[in-house]
Design a protein around this nucleic acid. Structure first.
Lengths: 247, 247
DNA sequence: GTCCAAAAGTCTGGAACCAGACCAATGAGG
DNA sequence: CCTCATTGGTCTGGTTCCAGACTTTTGGAC
């Protein structure tokens, strides 16, 4: 095997020579909007930004955006009204989750993709918590953290997921690294569909609440190691649950 | 402003409604290939994969890939030869670094960008090492790790950076999470320009070698905590050096 | 010297996507 | 009731990008 020098070999080339484009602009857009709806970024009854504005934000043409909106309209997620004060309104309530949905959702995703997403999330969220705990926090930062923590604890069941997301993302954003925050958001997105299929039960909430409190406490106490461990423990729980549903 | 309900507010919508396409396929491809060359994924004298294969990996058409290759050829990075045993060969050597270059490079980058990149790198590389140390390693994985470690230690000065990158990326890729590997590669890319501007001196190499050895040992011993700490210590060194050059 | 496989180079038709101009509907406010 | 700003709906021409078939060059193997 003379051949050309292979450099780092497979190592590195896998990461660097990965696909440049995620794929089809239309499908990608549908997926994004669907995530925004299911995550509650745009709540029930809420309105998407005007087409021209949204198209600019997403970096696509209005035509492509409209196709995506049309698809979601046909699928019953959106109600589009024209005229002033019109727009694309969210007409979708997340169904109350059942364990059967979860099993289906987990198996829809490939096993390797699930493992990838869980590993990635574990790494970046632990990293964010550790960084944040190691930083000198301002009063405003401390307040934001406790406020979002309170938000989860006081959330109505229908709002629980949204508040939970807000707490996790707050840690990421407070870390002060936009790159790290984006990575955490991305990681969360990849498991959102699955987490949404987990019923929100009182014991789970209480369990999670204790872990959330531990995370916040460790961060506020400035103990990076404890913060990292607390996040790891928290995420390990849901990760194990999801893994358990693999065929 | 009555308006529509805003959901998670800025949090989340920033991440969700970000651009779907990174931009122009051609430019994106040029950038990628350039990174691969500068990172040493394809070393001096080495050959890029055949066009058809590479196009498939990058998820673009051969036409677009060829345009990118042509641009790099014109810019003097590649030498393209046809016929069997032909291909696109790397004709580029990173210039020998001087401290003046480093100062300039650091200040070219914004302070916040530098801080962001360093934080991000710290988080994801620590995460990767921790994950890898916590996994049950196959013999092949162990061998890959020790082989890349030996690679750094035996590297000629001109080749040191490449081998160093190979070692760091090997840890990321062995973690088994493509997402995490991509994040580590991305993080490394953001500081490559700076690291390349640091002269490779014997004391630095010996210091780094000891830290590399500690990292590998912790991973092979299956001690996630030690692995994480070893990586943190290793990265903290260069991070402090770079921070010292801020205006 | 001839053959052949592997690689770059070329061409074509079509699909996806875009930018921008223009049309149509809607409902609050005068 | 009328006006008008705002929003979705439509159309047109052009650019980018793609999939695949085909051609040419090259150098090792026989």
């Amino acid at each position: 095997m003379g051949g050309a020098p292979t450099g780092l070999g497979v190592t590195g080339s896998l990461a660097l020579l990965r696909p440049v484009r995620s794929g089809n602009a239309f499908e990608e857009t549908v997926e994004r909007l669907l995530q925004a709806i299911k995550l509650g970024v745009v709540p029930y009854g809420g309105k998407l930004p005007p087409e021209r504005e949204l198209a600019a934000q997403l970096g696509i043409s209005r035509v492509t955006l409209r196709e995506a909106i049309r698809a979601l309209q046909d699928a019953g997620y959106l109600d589009v009204r024209r005229g002033r004060y019109g727009g694309a309104f969210v007409v979708y309530r997340p169904p109350h989750p059942r364990m059967g949905d979860l099993r289906r959702a987990v198996n829809e995703m490939g096993q390797s993709d699930l493992e990838d997403a869980l590993t990635f999330r574990m790494a970046v969220e632990c990293g964010a918590a550790q960084v944040l705990a190691g930083a000198r926090l301002t009063d405003a930062q401390r307040e934001t953290l406790t406020a979002t923590l309170d938000g989860v604890n006081e959330a109505a069941p229908d709002d629980y997921r949204r508040k939970d997301i807000a707490f996790h993302l707050a840690i990421a954003e407070l870390s002060g690294s936009p790159l790290l925050a984006a990575a955490c958001a991305d990681a969360r997105l990849r498991v959102t569909g699955l987490l949404n299929a987990i019923p929100v039960l009182r014991p789970n909430i209480e369990h999670a609440a204790a872990q959330h409190a531990a995370i916040a406490a460790a961060i506020l106490a400035g103990d990076p190691e404890a913060a990292r461990r607390a996040v790891a423990e928290h995420l390990e729980g849901t990760a194990a649950l999801l893994r358990g549903f693999l065929a």
